[in-house]
Design a protein around this nucleic acid. Structure first.
Lengths: 125, 125
DNA sequence: GTAACCGCTTTCCTTTGGGTAAGTAATGAC
DNA sequence: GTCATTACTTACCCAAAGGAAAGCGGTTAC
C-alpha cells in the first residue's frame, strides 16, 4: 500500500465530506430550469406570465413547480399585491445572491469546457 | 419600462450566456456518481473493482457507464498495462483538476445551505 | 353575455437515470 | 476440468423529470 502525499491532494475524509456538500448543493440547484428562474428574477422581479415568456420552452406546469420549490428553499418570495385583480410578483431573495460565487465558477468552467470540446472536435474532423 | 442599473446586477445577455455556461457545466458533472468517481480517482489511480468497492452502492453497470462518460470528457484516462492478465487502471487527468474551484464553491455553499436548513427546521419544531 | 387574461392545476405521455441480476470472455489457480 | 477473478455487458424494471394540452376560477373589457 503506497500512500502518496501532496499538499494539494485532499484526504479521504475531506473528500467524503466535500462530496456530501457538493451533492447537497447540486440537489438544490439541479434540474433544467431552477437556475434560469433564479437568474431571471435576480435581474428583476416578475409575474408568472412574464417569467414564462422570458424563459423560452418552460411549461406552466413546470414553472409553477419550480417556483414552489424555489420558494420553499428561500430563493424567491411570492408577493401578492392587493390590486384588482391581485398581482402576484415573484422576487429573488437576498439568499439567492449567496449563489453568486457558485454560479460564477460554474459559468467560467462551463465556458472554457465548451471551448475545449469545440477544439477537440475540430481535431477529429 | 424602468431600467434598474446596479453594478452587481448582470445584464440580460450576460445572464443568458452565463446560464448556458452553467447548464453546460452542470450537464457534465451531473448525476449521482460522477463527482464521487472523480474525487476517488484524484486521491489515487484505481482499478475497476477497487472503485466499485470504495464507492459504496454503485453497480458495475453504472460504474462502467460513468467511466466511459468521464473518459470521453477527458476527466480520466483508462490505461491498460500489459501484465498477464492485463491490469486496467483508471487515472484522473490534469484536466479534472480544473474542477477544483467549482467543487470548492459548491462544497462551501452546500455546507452553509445544510446549516441553514437545519436551523430553519429547529425554528419550526 | 362573451371573450380574453392571469395564475395556475390536471391528465396523460415519454424520456432519462438508475437499480438488480444474470451472463460472459479471458485468465490463472488448483 | 473446475472454480474464481477481472472487467465488463445485457436484459429487464421502476421512479422521477419533464413536455403537451386542456381546464378552471376569478377578473376585467366590450
Amino acid at each position: 500500500m503506497k500512500i502518496i502525499v501532496n499538499e494539494s491532494l485532499p484526504t479521504n475524509e475531506e473528500c467524503a465530506g466535500s462530496l456530501k456538500n457538493v451533492l447537497d448543493a447540486l440537489y438544490v440547484i439541479n434540474g433544467k430550469w431552477k437556475l434560469a428562474v433564479i437568474l431571471c428574477l435576480v435581474q428583476s422581479s416578475k409575474r408568472f406570465n412574464e417569467l414564462q415568456n422570458e424563459i423560452t420552452g418552460i411549461s406552466s406546469k413546470v414553472l409553477a413547480k419550480e417556483l414552489k420549490d424555489l420558494e420553499l428553499n428561500d430563493f424567491i418570495t411570492r408577493k401578492v399585491y392587493p390590486t384588482s385583480p391581485v398581482s402576484i410578483i415573484y422576487e429573488a431573495t437576498e439568499y439567492s445572491k449567496t449563489l453568486k460565487n457558485v454560479i460564477g465558477e460554474l459559468s467560467a468552467w462551463g465556458e472554457q469546457h465548451r471551448e475545449k470540446i469545440k477544439q477537440s472536435m475540430r481535431k477529429q474532423s
